[in-house]
Amino acid sequence: TGSPVPVLSATLVQVVKNANTLGIAIEGGANTRQPLPRIVTIQKGGSAHNCGQLKVGHIILEVNGISLRGREHKDAARIIAEAFKTKEKDHIDFLVVEPR
């Protein structure tokens, strides 16, 4: 018998910082209708678009191993912005799931 809870397979996507912008728009965060940030736009020419693996609709669970669960929108956006800005890494690791 199957599990009553649908199992979503998470995918680790590495986005190399090869453009001046990350180039994604996100919505959602704790205490909103969309409790985890969801990608709503991917801009051509940005690092995310160049990577080719992030998709509109992906829900972001973690950024560089930092969980976004329970974080409000601004906090999640800040974590992603800082991951792009830091010179300590030449890429960002996104753990994402496809929407149901």
Binding site: T21, L22, G23, I24, A25, I26, E27, G28, G29, N31, T32, R33, Q34, V40, T41, Q43, H73, K74, A77, I80, A81, F84
Partner: peptide
């Protein structure tokens, strides 16, 4: 605290 049936929509941030 009042329990809301619908949560508010989120703002959108471009990164």
């Amino acid at each position: 605290r009042e329990k809301r049936l619908t949560l508010p929509p989120s703002e959108i941030t471009l990164l």
